[in-house]
Write a protein that binds this DNA or RNA. Structure first.
Length: 257
DNA sequence: ATGGTCGCTACGCGA
């Protein structure tokens, strides 16, 4: 089962890219972030034509998440973090073929020390507690999404800039991610690759992609129980080369049967 | 340090 995460930065604009990439990459499960669509406008019919069932939680203008599953049911759908009041649609989870999949659009946080940064840390703490409970109930767990955190210096193009005081790489953010991993999760990409300089996001500004000024912030985490089944992983740079692209590339992991 | 580019929406906000 190939499971992927992609921040599409407006599904309205990026639907043709998503359709093309689904045909190319043939994922079985996809977590989408930043759909920026109200549910009434979600393109479930277009995705069904490619064989994908969908569940989604959207809002106008900002945020919005979805899960796609090819020829498989999406059961026990959960929208939002249980017990955490949040108007922003950033979380959707479902069980697919006995694997619990949690799709996260983690708060960006703007800048260290801002209100949005405090919200990011509160939000991550709520995710931590919820994932702990989910792991107890579902040992076969995948947590994927746009984490808006680069795990370590290998995951940034310039560690001098992206340092312990910078948003997306600050100590508190990385500690929160480490805490999540400490529950019994593994960054699937790092099970198969230890090289630096493989990125999933490049700023639209300053020709970030052309100059490869990127970060790896789109992650697929697999639980201890799935670790041995995670046989391959990667990031598909190609959609980032297409015309009018998302600023993120898809990240994926393949689980053996 | 600032501003650069997108998407949404209609101007500034969020990323």
């Amino acid at each position: 089962m190939k499971i992927a995460s992609w921040n599409v930065n407006s599904l309205n604009v990026r639907l043709p890219h998503l359709e093309q990439w689904l045909r190319d990459a043939q994922p079985d499960v996809v977590g989408i972030q930043e759909t920026k669509l109200e549910d009434a406008r979600f393109p479930d019919t277009a995705l069904a034509a490619l064989g994908y069932r969908t569940v989604f939680a959207g809002q106008k203008t900002y945020n919005g998440v979805a899960l796609l599953a090819r020829d498989r049911a999406l059961d026990d759908v959960q929208i939002g973090i249980p017990g955490f009041e949040d108007e922003q649609k950033r979380v959707i989870a479902a069980t697919i073929d006995g694997v619990r999949v949690i799709n996260l659009y983690v708060v960006n946080g703007q800048d260290v020390g801002t209100d949005k940064y405090a919200y990011k840390l509160r939000w991550l703490a709520a995710v931590h507690d919820w994932v702990q409970r989910e792991l107890a109930a579902h040992p076969k767990l995948v947590v994927l999404g746009d984490f808006n955190i680069a795990p370590d210096d290998r995951d940034v193009h310039d560690p001098a800039v992206w340092n312990d005081g910078h948003i997306l790489t600050s100590t508190a953010e990385r500690d929160a991610l480490r805490g999540l991993l400490g529950l019994g999760l593994h960054d699937a990409f790092r099970l198969h690759h230890d090289d630096a300089g493989v990125f999933s996001w490049w700023d639209y500004r300053q020709a970030g992609f052309r100059r490869d000024l990127g970060l790896r912030i789109d992650l697929t985490l697999v639980s201890d129980a799935l670790r041995d089944q995670a046989v391959a992983s990667g990031i598909d740079r190609e959609p980032r080369t297409w015309e009018r692209p998302s600023d993120h590339a898809p990240a994926w992991v393949t689980l053996s049967d």
